[in-house]
Design a protein around this nucleic acid. Sequence first.
DNA 1: TAGATTGTTAATCGATTAACAATC
DNA 2: TAGATTGTTAATCGATTAACAATC
Lengths: 208, 208
Amino acid sequence: MDNLDRIKRLLIYKNLLCQMQNLGFVKVFSDNIADALDISSSLVRKDFAFFGIVGSQKGGYDIVTILGKINEILGKNQVQKVIVIGVGRLGSAFLRYGKGFTDEGIKIVAGFDVDPSIIDPNADPPVLLISNLSEFIKTNSIHIAIVAVPEASARHTIDLLKSEGILGILNFTSLKIKSTEETIINHVNIEHELARLIYAVNNRRQVS
Amino acid sequence: MDNLDRIKRLLIYKNLLCQMQNLGFVKVFSDNIADALDISSSLVRKDFAFFGIVGSQKGGYDIVTILGKINEILGKNQVQKVIVIGVGRLGSAFLRYGKGFTDEGIKIVAGFDVDPSIIDPNADPPVLLISNLSEFIKTNSIHIAIVAVPEASARHTIDLLKSEGILGILNFTSLKIKSTEETIINHVNIEHELARLIYAVNNRRQVS
DNA sequence: TAGATTGTTAATCGATTAACAATC
DNA sequence: TAGATTGTTAATCGATTAACAATC
Protein backbone atom coordinates (compact mmCIF):
# COMPACT_ATOMS: atom_id res chain seq x y z
CA MET A 1 0.00 0.00 0.00
CA ASP A 2 2.80 2.36 -0.70
CA ASN A 3 1.19 4.46 -3.34
CA LEU A 4 1.69 7.35 -0.97
CA ASP A 5 4.71 8.34 -3.04
CA ARG A 6 2.49 8.25 -6.07
CA ILE A 7 0.03 10.60 -4.37
CA LYS A 8 2.84 12.99 -3.61
CA ARG A 9 3.72 13.10 -7.28
CA LEU A 10 0.09 13.30 -8.33
CA LEU A 11 -0.16 16.60 -6.48
CA ILE A 12 2.96 17.84 -8.20
CA TYR A 13 1.61 16.77 -11.59
CA LYS A 14 -1.53 18.67 -10.77
CA ASN A 15 0.32 21.89 -10.01
CA LEU A 16 2.32 21.62 -13.20
CA LEU A 17 -0.64 20.79 -15.41
CA CYS A 18 -2.73 23.63 -13.98
CA GLN A 19 0.02 26.00 -14.96
CA MET A 20 0.20 24.52 -18.45
CA GLN A 21 -3.55 24.85 -18.75
CA ASN A 22 -3.32 28.52 -17.82
CA LEU A 23 -0.84 28.96 -20.63
CA GLY A 24 -3.34 27.51 -23.06
CA PHE A 25 -1.91 24.02 -23.48
CA VAL A 26 -4.32 21.20 -24.19
CA LYS A 27 -2.14 18.09 -24.48
CA VAL A 28 1.03 16.90 -22.86
CA PHE A 29 3.51 14.04 -23.35
CA SER A 30 4.98 12.01 -20.53
CA ASP A 31 8.35 13.24 -21.75
CA ASN A 32 7.47 16.89 -21.17
CA ILE A 33 6.38 16.21 -17.62
CA ALA A 34 9.49 14.12 -17.00
CA ASP A 35 11.73 16.97 -18.14
CA ALA A 36 9.98 19.54 -16.01
CA LEU A 37 10.00 17.40 -12.91
CA ASP A 38 13.37 15.72 -13.26
CA ILE A 39 12.04 12.18 -13.26
CA SER A 40 11.82 9.56 -16.00
CA SER A 41 8.98 9.44 -18.48
CA SER A 42 8.48 5.78 -17.53
CA LEU A 43 7.55 6.83 -14.05
CA VAL A 44 5.05 9.38 -15.28
CA ARG A 45 3.40 6.81 -17.52
CA LYS A 46 3.42 4.23 -14.76
CA ASP A 47 1.83 6.65 -12.30
CA PHE A 48 -0.85 7.53 -14.81
CA ALA A 49 -1.50 3.88 -15.63
CA PHE A 50 -1.73 3.11 -11.92
CA PHE A 51 -4.48 5.68 -11.44
CA GLY A 52 -6.28 4.75 -14.64
CA ILE A 53 -5.25 7.82 -16.62
CA VAL A 54 -4.91 6.78 -20.25
CA GLY A 55 -3.35 8.62 -23.18
CA SER A 56 -3.00 7.95 -26.85
CA GLN A 57 0.05 7.19 -28.92
CA LYS A 58 -0.88 10.07 -31.12
CA GLY A 59 -1.57 13.06 -28.92
CA GLY A 60 -0.18 12.03 -25.55
CA TYR A 61 -2.45 12.89 -22.61
CA ASP A 62 -5.30 15.36 -22.50
CA ILE A 63 -4.67 17.85 -19.69
CA VAL A 64 -8.31 18.42 -18.82
CA THR A 65 -8.85 14.67 -18.57
CA ILE A 66 -5.86 14.18 -16.30
CA LEU A 67 -6.86 17.01 -14.00
CA GLY A 68 -10.39 15.70 -13.74
CA LYS A 69 -9.14 12.26 -12.90
CA ILE A 70 -6.68 13.58 -10.31
CA ASN A 71 -9.41 15.55 -8.57
CA GLU A 72 -11.59 12.47 -8.55
CA ILE A 73 -8.76 10.40 -7.01
CA LEU A 74 -8.08 13.01 -4.37
CA GLY A 75 -11.74 13.12 -3.45
CA LYS A 76 -11.99 16.74 -4.49
CA ASN A 77 -15.47 16.32 -5.84
CA GLN A 78 -16.78 16.68 -2.33
CA VAL A 79 -15.38 19.33 -0.02
CA GLN A 80 -13.21 17.89 2.73
CA LYS A 81 -13.92 19.48 6.09
CA VAL A 82 -10.97 20.02 8.42
CA ILE A 83 -10.78 21.35 11.99
CA VAL A 84 -7.79 22.93 13.73
CA ILE A 85 -7.02 22.11 17.35
CA GLY A 86 -4.99 24.81 19.07
CA VAL A 87 -5.50 28.38 17.88
CA GLY A 88 -2.13 29.83 18.79
CA ARG A 89 0.12 31.46 16.24
CA LEU A 90 0.49 28.45 14.04
CA GLY A 91 -3.09 27.28 14.41
CA SER A 92 -4.55 30.67 13.61
CA ALA A 93 -2.31 30.82 10.55
CA PHE A 94 -3.96 27.65 9.28
CA LEU A 95 -7.43 28.95 10.15
CA ARG A 96 -6.99 32.06 8.03
CA TYR A 97 -5.36 30.12 5.21
CA GLY A 98 -8.91 29.02 4.46
CA LYS A 99 -9.26 30.94 1.23
CA GLY A 100 -6.18 29.41 -0.32
CA PHE A 101 -7.37 25.92 0.47
CA THR A 102 -10.95 25.99 -0.70
CA ASP A 103 -10.19 25.88 -4.40
CA GLU A 104 -8.46 22.64 -3.62
CA GLY A 105 -11.58 21.15 -2.13
CA ILE A 106 -10.25 21.46 1.40
CA LYS A 107 -12.16 23.61 3.86
CA ILE A 108 -11.12 24.59 7.36
CA VAL A 109 -14.44 24.72 9.16
CA ALA A 110 -13.51 25.55 12.77
CA GLY A 111 -10.77 26.05 15.32
CA PHE A 112 -10.77 24.80 18.90
CA ASP A 113 -8.87 26.02 21.95
CA VAL A 114 -8.92 25.82 25.73
CA ASP A 115 -8.42 29.56 26.24
CA PRO A 116 -11.85 31.24 26.62
CA SER A 117 -10.38 34.65 25.80
CA ILE A 118 -9.76 33.75 22.16
CA ILE A 119 -13.09 32.03 21.55
CA ASP A 120 -15.14 33.67 18.81
CA PRO A 121 -18.09 31.64 17.55
CA ASN A 122 -19.00 34.35 15.07
CA ALA A 123 -15.68 34.46 13.31
CA ASP A 124 -15.24 32.76 9.97
CA PRO A 125 -14.20 30.09 10.56
CA PRO A 126 -15.47 30.08 14.17
CA VAL A 127 -13.13 29.53 17.11
CA LEU A 128 -14.82 27.31 19.70
CA LEU A 129 -14.09 25.92 23.14
CA ILE A 130 -12.57 22.48 23.13
CA SER A 131 -15.51 21.30 25.24
CA ASN A 132 -17.68 21.69 22.15
CA LEU A 133 -15.44 19.43 20.10
CA SER A 134 -17.33 16.20 20.53
CA GLU A 135 -20.66 17.63 19.49
CA PHE A 136 -19.19 19.56 16.57
CA ILE A 137 -17.48 16.48 15.18
CA LYS A 138 -20.68 14.49 15.28
CA THR A 139 -22.93 17.23 13.91
CA ASN A 140 -20.60 18.06 11.04
CA SER A 141 -19.19 14.62 10.27
CA ILE A 142 -15.57 15.70 10.70
CA HIS A 143 -12.87 13.14 9.87
CA ILE A 144 -9.72 15.24 9.60
CA ALA A 145 -7.95 17.41 12.19
CA ILE A 146 -4.81 19.54 12.30
CA VAL A 147 -3.06 19.56 15.69
CA ALA A 148 -1.17 22.75 16.52
CA VAL A 149 -1.29 22.76 20.31
CA PRO A 150 1.65 23.33 22.67
CA GLU A 151 3.98 20.39 23.20
CA ALA A 152 2.61 19.63 26.66
CA SER A 153 -0.96 19.14 25.45
CA ALA A 154 -0.06 17.08 22.40
CA ARG A 155 -0.63 13.60 23.74
CA HIS A 156 -3.84 14.45 25.47
CA THR A 157 -5.18 16.21 22.37
CA ILE A 158 -4.37 13.34 20.05
CA ASP A 159 -5.90 10.80 22.42
CA LEU A 160 -9.03 12.92 22.56
CA LEU A 161 -9.27 13.11 18.78
CA LYS A 162 -8.83 9.37 18.49
CA SER A 163 -11.55 8.71 21.02
CA GLU A 164 -13.85 11.04 19.13
CA GLY A 165 -13.41 8.92 16.04
CA ILE A 166 -11.24 11.26 13.97
CA LEU A 167 -9.72 9.27 11.09
CA GLY A 168 -6.81 11.46 10.05
CA ILE A 169 -4.53 13.78 12.02
CA LEU A 170 -1.91 16.16 10.70
CA ASN A 171 0.34 16.68 13.70
CA PHE A 172 2.54 19.76 13.96
CA THR A 173 3.83 19.01 17.44
CA SER A 174 7.04 17.07 17.81
CA LEU A 175 5.26 14.22 19.59
CA LYS A 176 5.78 11.16 17.45
CA ILE A 177 2.78 8.84 17.67
CA LYS A 178 2.19 5.96 15.32
CA SER A 179 -0.90 5.57 13.20
CA THR A 180 -3.37 2.97 14.38
CA GLU A 181 -5.84 0.83 12.53
CA GLU A 182 -8.46 3.52 13.12
CA THR A 183 -6.54 6.77 12.89
CA ILE A 184 -3.84 7.82 10.44
CA ILE A 185 -1.37 10.28 11.95
CA ASN A 186 1.01 12.22 9.73
CA HIS A 187 3.71 14.41 11.16
CA VAL A 188 5.13 17.72 10.01
CA ASN A 189 8.09 18.76 12.12
CA ILE A 190 9.33 22.18 11.15
CA GLU A 191 12.28 21.97 13.47
CA HIS A 192 13.41 18.75 11.83
CA GLU A 193 13.00 20.27 8.40
CA LEU A 194 15.20 23.17 9.43
CA ALA A 195 17.78 20.89 11.00
CA ARG A 196 17.97 18.79 7.84
CA LEU A 197 18.38 21.88 5.72
CA ILE A 198 21.13 23.20 7.95
CA TYR A 199 22.92 19.86 7.81
CA ALA A 200 22.66 19.76 4.03
CA VAL A 201 24.07 23.29 3.75
CA ASN A 202 26.93 22.60 6.15
CA ASN A 203 27.90 19.37 4.46
CA ARG A 204 27.53 20.37 0.87
CA ARG A 205 30.80 19.45 -0.77
CA GLN A 206 32.68 22.21 -2.46
CA VAL A 207 32.37 22.35 -6.23
CA SER A 208 34.81 24.58 -7.98
CA MET B 1 24.77 11.75 -1.27
CA ASP B 2 21.51 10.40 -0.02
CA ASN B 3 22.23 10.33 3.65
CA LEU B 4 19.37 12.75 3.97
CA ASP B 5 17.21 9.83 5.05
CA ARG B 6 19.81 9.05 7.65
CA ILE B 7 19.62 12.62 8.95
CA LYS B 8 15.87 12.33 9.22
CA ARG B 9 16.30 9.28 11.40
CA LEU B 10 19.12 10.87 13.35
CA LEU B 11 16.70 13.53 14.53
CA ILE B 12 14.21 10.88 15.52
CA TYR B 13 16.89 8.97 17.41
CA LYS B 14 17.75 12.17 19.17
CA ASN B 15 14.18 12.78 20.34
CA LEU B 16 13.89 9.25 21.59
CA LEU B 17 17.23 9.22 23.38
CA CYS B 18 16.55 12.57 25.07
CA GLN B 19 13.40 11.08 26.51
CA MET B 20 15.25 7.99 27.67
CA GLN B 21 17.85 10.21 29.25
CA ASN B 22 15.15 12.10 31.12
CA LEU B 23 13.94 8.78 32.47
CA GLY B 24 17.40 8.10 33.81
CA PHE B 25 18.64 5.61 31.24
CA VAL B 26 22.34 5.53 30.51
CA LYS B 27 22.78 2.83 27.87
CA VAL B 28 20.72 1.55 25.00
CA PHE B 29 20.83 -1.39 22.57
CA SER B 30 20.14 -1.11 18.88
CA ASP B 31 17.34 -3.55 19.47
CA ASN B 32 15.54 -1.24 21.90
CA ILE B 33 15.65 1.63 19.46
CA ALA B 34 14.50 -0.62 16.65
CA ASP B 35 11.46 -1.72 18.64
CA ALA B 36 10.47 1.80 19.60
CA LEU B 37 10.84 3.11 16.09
CA ASP B 38 9.53 0.17 14.11
CA ILE B 39 12.69 -0.32 12.08
CA SER B 40 15.31 -3.06 12.11
CA SER B 41 18.21 -3.09 14.52
CA SER B 42 20.53 -3.49 11.53
CA LEU B 43 19.47 -0.11 10.27
CA VAL B 44 20.10 1.53 13.63
CA ARG B 45 23.59 0.02 13.80
CA LYS B 46 24.27 0.97 10.21
CA ASP B 47 23.19 4.55 10.80
CA PHE B 48 25.38 4.78 13.87
CA ALA B 49 28.35 3.25 12.09
CA PHE B 50 27.84 5.67 9.21
CA PHE B 51 28.09 8.66 11.53
CA GLY B 52 30.96 7.20 13.54
CA ILE B 53 28.94 6.35 16.63
CA VAL B 54 30.46 3.22 18.17
CA GLY B 55 29.13 0.93 20.83
CA SER B 56 30.40 -2.10 22.66
CA GLN B 57 29.31 -5.71 22.54
CA LYS B 58 28.88 -5.60 26.25
CA GLY B 59 26.84 -2.54 27.09
CA GLY B 60 25.43 -1.41 23.76
CA TYR B 61 25.63 2.34 23.16
CA ASP B 62 26.13 5.13 25.68
CA ILE B 63 23.28 7.60 25.40
CA VAL B 64 25.29 10.68 26.33
CA THR B 65 27.91 9.77 23.75
CA ILE B 66 25.34 9.30 21.02
CA LEU B 67 23.61 12.59 21.79
CA GLY B 68 26.91 14.44 21.81
CA LYS B 69 27.86 12.98 18.48
CA ILE B 70 24.47 13.75 16.96
CA ASN B 71 24.68 17.39 18.02
CA GLU B 72 28.15 17.56 16.57
CA ILE B 73 26.92 16.12 13.26
CA LEU B 74 24.00 18.52 13.12
CA GLY B 75 26.32 21.44 13.73
CA LYS B 76 24.59 22.25 16.99
CA ASN B 77 27.78 23.32 18.65
CA GLN B 78 27.45 26.67 17.01
CA VAL B 79 24.09 28.41 16.90
CA GLN B 80 22.55 28.44 13.44
CA LYS B 81 21.04 31.80 12.55
CA VAL B 82 17.86 31.81 10.48
CA ILE B 83 15.80 34.66 9.02
CA VAL B 84 12.13 34.63 8.04
CA ILE B 85 10.95 36.36 4.88
CA GLY B 86 7.29 37.34 4.99
CA VAL B 87 5.83 38.16 8.40
CA GLY B 88 2.21 37.28 7.76
CA ARG B 89 0.34 34.76 9.87
CA LEU B 90 2.62 31.86 9.11
CA GLY B 91 5.82 33.88 9.16
CA SER B 92 5.03 35.49 12.49
CA ALA B 93 4.26 32.06 13.91
CA PHE B 94 7.81 31.01 13.04
CA LEU B 95 9.26 34.22 14.44
CA ARG B 96 7.68 33.67 17.84
CA TYR B 97 8.58 29.98 17.83
CA GLY B 98 12.04 31.24 18.67
CA LYS B 99 12.13 29.94 22.19
CA GLY B 100 11.29 26.39 21.19
CA PHE B 101 14.07 26.35 18.64
CA THR B 102 16.99 27.75 20.55
CA ASP B 103 17.63 24.68 22.67
CA GLU B 104 18.12 22.92 19.39
CA GLY B 105 20.84 25.29 18.35
CA ILE B 106 18.61 27.06 15.86
CA LYS B 107 17.91 30.73 16.33
CA ILE B 108 15.48 32.89 14.39
CA VAL B 109 17.25 36.24 14.32
CA ALA B 110 14.96 38.47 12.25
CA GLY B 111 11.87 38.73 10.08
CA PHE B 112 11.55 40.76 6.87
CA ASP B 113 8.48 42.15 5.13
CA VAL B 114 7.47 44.73 2.53
CA ASP B 115 4.66 46.18 4.64
CA PRO B 116 6.02 49.20 6.60
CA SER B 117 3.10 49.01 9.07
CA ILE B 118 4.32 45.79 10.62
CA ILE B 119 7.96 46.76 10.85
CA ASP B 120 9.30 46.75 14.41
CA PRO B 121 13.08 46.92 14.73
CA ASN B 122 12.84 46.80 18.51
CA ALA B 123 10.90 43.57 18.72
CA ASP B 124 12.67 40.34 19.58
CA PRO B 125 13.35 39.09 17.03
CA PRO B 126 13.16 42.37 15.06
CA VAL B 127 10.91 42.76 12.04
CA LEU B 128 12.70 44.73 9.34
CA LEU B 129 11.97 46.16 5.91
CA ILE B 130 12.97 43.90 3.07
CA SER B 131 15.18 46.71 1.77
CA ASN B 132 17.47 46.06 4.73
CA LEU B 133 17.86 42.41 3.82
CA SER B 134 21.08 42.65 1.88
CA GLU B 135 22.94 44.52 4.57
CA PHE B 136 21.59 42.31 7.36
CA ILE B 137 22.68 39.13 5.62
CA LYS B 138 26.20 40.44 5.17
CA THR B 139 26.57 41.89 8.63
CA ASN B 140 25.26 38.80 10.38
CA SER B 141 26.58 36.09 8.07
CA ILE B 142 23.14 34.58 7.42
CA HIS B 143 23.01 31.39 5.36
CA ILE B 144 19.52 30.03 6.02
CA ALA B 145 16.10 31.58 5.28
CA ILE B 146 12.48 30.53 5.71
CA VAL B 147 10.16 31.80 2.99
CA ALA B 148 6.56 32.44 4.05
CA VAL B 149 5.49 35.15 1.62
CA PRO B 150 2.27 35.18 -0.44
CA GLU B 151 2.22 32.99 -3.52
CA ALA B 152 2.61 35.93 -5.88
CA SER B 153 5.89 37.10 -4.34
CA ALA B 154 7.43 33.66 -4.02
CA ARG B 155 9.57 33.59 -7.14
CA HIS B 156 10.85 37.10 -6.71
CA THR B 157 11.69 36.44 -3.06
CA ILE B 158 13.59 33.26 -3.76
CA ASP B 159 15.51 34.87 -6.59
CA LEU B 160 16.44 37.69 -4.25
CA LEU B 161 17.67 35.31 -1.58
CA LYS B 162 19.74 33.41 -4.12
CA SER B 163 21.35 36.58 -5.39
CA GLU B 164 22.16 37.58 -1.83
CA GLY B 165 24.11 34.38 -1.42
CA ILE B 166 21.72 32.49 0.88
CA LEU B 167 22.74 28.82 0.92
CA GLY B 168 19.60 27.12 2.22
CA ILE B 169 15.91 27.97 1.83
CA LEU B 170 12.94 26.35 3.54
CA ASN B 171 10.08 27.23 1.26
CA PHE B 172 6.50 27.25 2.54
CA THR B 173 4.96 28.59 -0.67
CA SER B 174 3.70 26.13 -3.25
CA LEU B 175 6.19 27.38 -5.80
CA LYS B 176 8.36 24.41 -6.70
CA ILE B 177 11.90 25.53 -7.50
CA LYS B 178 14.81 23.18 -7.80
CA SER B 179 17.96 23.46 -5.73
CA THR B 180 20.98 24.81 -7.53
CA GLU B 181 24.66 24.26 -7.07
CA GLU B 182 24.73 27.28 -4.77
CA THR B 183 21.40 27.16 -2.96
CA ILE B 184 19.56 24.20 -1.45
CA ILE B 185 15.80 24.67 -1.52
CA ASN B 186 13.55 22.40 0.55
CA HIS B 187 9.79 22.56 0.30
CA VAL B 188 7.08 22.15 2.91
CA ASN B 189 3.65 22.19 1.35
CA ILE B 190 0.93 22.06 3.97
CA GLU B 191 -1.79 21.78 1.38
CA HIS B 192 -0.11 18.73 -0.12
CA GLU B 193 0.29 17.17 3.30
CA LEU B 194 -3.41 17.64 3.96
CA ALA B 195 -4.37 16.29 0.56
CA ARG B 196 -2.24 13.19 1.12
CA LEU B 197 -3.77 12.62 4.51
CA ILE B 198 -7.27 12.96 3.12
CA TYR B 199 -6.47 10.51 0.35
CA ALA B 200 -5.06 8.03 2.83
CA VAL B 201 -8.16 8.30 5.00
CA ASN B 202 -10.55 7.94 2.08
CA ASN B 203 -8.73 4.96 0.65
CA ARG B 204 -7.97 3.07 3.83
CA ARG B 205 -9.24 -0.42 3.23
CA GLN B 206 -11.75 -1.75 5.66
CA VAL B 207 -10.40 -4.08 8.31
CA SER B 208 -13.01 -5.98 10.24
C1' DT C 1 4.35 4.39 -44.57
C1' DA C 2 7.53 6.52 -41.29
C1' DG C 3 7.80 8.64 -36.96
C1' DA C 4 6.59 9.14 -32.36
C1' DT C 5 4.44 7.95 -28.11
C1' DT C 6 2.01 4.93 -25.05
C1' DG C 7 1.70 0.87 -21.96
C1' DT C 8 4.30 -2.70 -19.98
C1' DT C 9 8.01 -5.96 -19.19
C1' DA C 10 12.75 -6.58 -17.86
C1' DA C 11 16.90 -4.44 -15.72
C1' DT C 12 18.92 -1.46 -12.41
C1' DC C 13 19.62 0.86 -8.48
C1' DG C 14 19.38 1.94 -3.64
C1' DA C 15 17.70 1.34 0.78
C1' DT C 16 16.41 -1.92 4.33
C1' DT C 17 16.76 -6.30 6.53
C1' DA C 18 18.69 -10.84 7.65
C1' DA C 19 22.42 -13.30 9.08
C1' DC C 20 26.60 -14.16 11.20
C1' DA C 21 31.51 -13.84 12.57
C1' DA C 22 33.99 -11.23 15.92
C1' DT C 23 34.23 -9.95 20.64
C1' DC C 24 33.13 -8.29 25.10
C1' DT D 1 32.78 -20.27 29.37
C1' DA D 2 28.15 -19.14 27.74
C1' DG D 3 25.31 -15.50 26.32
C1' DA D 4 24.45 -11.37 24.07
C1' DT D 5 25.43 -7.54 21.17
C1' DT D 6 28.09 -5.06 17.84
C1' DG D 7 29.82 -4.22 13.12
C1' DT D 8 29.53 -5.79 8.52
C1' DT D 9 28.64 -8.74 4.60
C1' DA D 10 25.17 -10.96 1.85
C1' DA D 11 20.18 -11.23 0.65
C1' DT D 12 15.86 -9.06 -0.07
C1' DC D 13 12.71 -5.89 -1.22
C1' DG D 14 10.69 -2.01 -3.55
C1' DA D 15 10.90 1.89 -6.31
C1' DT D 16 12.74 3.92 -10.46
C1' DT D 17 14.49 3.59 -15.04
C1' DA D 18 15.54 1.49 -19.52
C1' DA D 19 13.91 -0.72 -23.33
C1' DC D 20 10.76 -2.15 -26.63
C1' DA D 21 6.58 -4.10 -28.79
C1' DA D 22 2.13 -2.34 -29.93
C1' DT D 23 -0.28 1.27 -32.20
C1' DC D 24 -1.89 5.64 -33.60
